[in-house]
Design a protein around this nucleic acid. Structure first.
Lengths: 195, 195
DNA sequence: CCCGCTATGTATAATAT
DNA sequence: TATATTATACATAGCGG
């Protein structure tokens, strides 16, 4: 046996790499679990691998998404500052990633902003929701739109409210990725209620 | 010394808990780093703790957000199914979290959908962006709105397009959380261009 | 390929400074 | 309270079935 001291580098042997991955992922998840239990903190872990078509998460989808939502609230700058106060191996990565980060930030700025605009002005955000979500969302939207219509009717006589919104949305949403049929269903439900 | 076997439960002693947290977080990050290096996989870790006002991430903000973006693309059902195929300690947690999940899902469904609707119909999504983001976004939005206006003008004679959108947004966005001033700035910039 | 084994490297609980 | 030390529990590389 006489185990080697593990050279910290990419394992070229495919089967050995997969074996190591499985073992270490297991250990890591256990560690995360223990840390969360022992210290009562919010934590999540996400792994992507060629061995699973879906990323593997800890503790579960709900928990991870909750942490993710919190994480996304942080202003970008604050996050970067925080990063610098980590352990040495983190610092090393930061140094390397820093220039890459700066360059990529600049390059991606416009695309990112365009994407954000599309996601929020158009209906692209619906692609993250499944059919059940869309049904429930439709119900909520219906109810709220009715309420909204009441308020609007009390203010003005015009009827072009939602149709112009739809016009803007469609104009702002050029052929992005393939749009799921359900998305259109959901959107149409909204418009029907409004019209 | 004669170290105990570590009872896997919340550490009530404050200082001991903090000490354990720091040690284990450090170890965990190292493990994640090694796993990523050795197996060349995409991974990220996020920790929330009462000891830092910002969550701590691995490997960095960019990397984490990239993994997060991928993660959010997964349909909810697929994620849950995947979860069941984990190690035994994961199964145990799933069993416990499962009923909690079901109940919470049901309870949160309407709130969640309402929130999604607000985020997408209203301008709440802007709170995730810092001032620099808002400036750049404003530039992109300005340019696109001009393009959109051109298209709309080619179709119709009405001028109520964006103003009705604004009406819907404001009607759909009751007093949520405190709205940052910059949000209004950004929105007004959009409307100014449109009007 | 997947699992189990076991020697050995690594993480860390307890303690001291 | 933070950091350093050390003995021990734990993780896992390499190998065999």
């Amino acid at each position: 046996m006489t185990r080697k001291k593990v050279k910290l580098a990419f394992i070229t042997n495919d089967s050995a790499r997969k074996a190591t991955f499985k073992k270490r992922k297991k250990g890591l998840m256990k560690k995360v679990s223990e840390l969360s239990t022992l210290c009562g903190i919010d934590a999540c872990a996400i792994f992507y691998s060629p061995y699973e078509n879906q990323p593997e998460v800890w503790p579960n989808t709900m928990g991870a998404q909750r942490v993710l939502a919190e994480f996304k609230r942080m202003p970008e700058m604050e996050q970067s500052k925080k990063m610098v106060n980590q352990e040495s191996f983190i610092r090393q990565r930061i140094a390397k990633a820093s220039e890459q980060l700066k360059k990529q930030s600049k390059e991606n700025r416009e695309k990112e902003m365009t994407e954000v605009m599309y996601q929020c002005l158009a209906e692209k955000w619906l692609q993250n929701l499944n059919l059940g979500d869309l049904n429930d969302l439709g119900w909520v939207v219906d109810r709220n739109l009715k309420e909204i219509n009441k308020r609007i009717e009390a203010f003005r006589k015009g009827t072009s409210t939602s149709s112009s919104f739809a016009a803007v949305s469609q104009a702002a949403a050029p052929p992005l990725v393939e749009q799921k049929p359900v998305v259109e269903l959901g959107l149409e439900g909204m418009q029907r209620t409004q019209t």
